[in-house]
């Protein structure tokens, strides 16, 4: 019988996450006062919806790389399952982040995509993890697949962080808040109530993205039990 991991099999944080996101969905429309925040007008509410996608993605990738390291230490396949499923869901949230960001850009900067360090960095980061998933699918043998992808993941994660956070911050100019010469929203006078819904949204989406990941992990765990039965 597999050991029960409480952060996968317990329930309270799922409901907490759902409540926080529901609060931020409502609060983002009712509590935020968008007056006087640059040219963003009402679209500043997107802070509650677009940015948490990236927080969810990055937190899942932290989980993924930690489990890749654990896999290489122990060669226990359960770590490989957690690492790969986290990366899979992280890629999904990254796509949501790119799509929502692109839509927001169309109405704030007038274009779907622009050669900005933050945008291209995020796109490259996404591609790095596409490659991770393709690499996994291209290796048939289970142990080899797990080992190769764990090593790849350890190299990929620092690169991802550099492309998505470090390089945009170092860039001389960028339109995206929090990168290059553009400051983050936290530098503006905060009469907008943004924080009241932004922080709960981040926590809530991290919880929900991890919830979805645990469902996938549990399915894989069941499959691996079935497979060992057959042998």
């Amino acid at each position: 019988m597999p050991q029960k991991n409480t952060l996968i099999y317990s329930n309270w944080w799922k409901y907490a996450g759902a409540a926080l996101v529901l609060y931020s969905l409502i609060g983002g429309l009712l509590f935020v006062n968008p007056n006087n925040l640059l040219f963003l007008d009402e679209t500043v509410r997107n802070l509650n919806y677009h940015v948490p996608m990236w927080f969810a993605m990055i937190s899942l990738l932290c989980i993924s790389v930690a489990n890749s390291i654990m896999y290489l230490k122990t060669f226990n396949p359960k770590f490989d399952i957690i690492a790969s499923k986290s990366a899979e869901v992280a890629v999904f949230f990254g796509i949501m982040g790119l799509a929502t960001g692109s839509f927001w850009a169309k109405f704030s900067w007038g274009t779907w995509w622009t050669t900005d360090y933050k945008l291209n960095g995020a796109a490259i980061g996404e591609l790095i993890y596409f490659a991770y998933l393709i690499l996994r699918n291209s290796v048939e043998e289970q142990n080899k697949k797990a080992r190769l992808s764990a090593v790849y993941s350890i190299f990929a994660f620092p690169l991802f962080i550099v492309f998505i956070i470090v390089l945009p911050k170092l860039a001389s100019n960028s339109m995206h808040p929090g990168s290059g010469d553009t400051v983050g929203f936290n530098k503006y006078p905060l009469n907008n109530n943004l924080r009241m819904t932004f922080y709960p949204a981040i926590l809530g989406w991290i919880a929900i993205s991890w919830w979805i990941t645990t469902l996938l992990i549990r399915i894989e765990n069941l499959k691996s039990i079935e497979n060992t039965d057959e042998n």
Binding site: A18, L22, L25, I212
Partner: peptide
Amino acid sequence: VVAVISIIFTGIIIFLI
């Protein structure tokens, strides 16, 4: 709009549960 969004999100959560 807030009510519609809440209904959809609550539905998705119930589905997940």
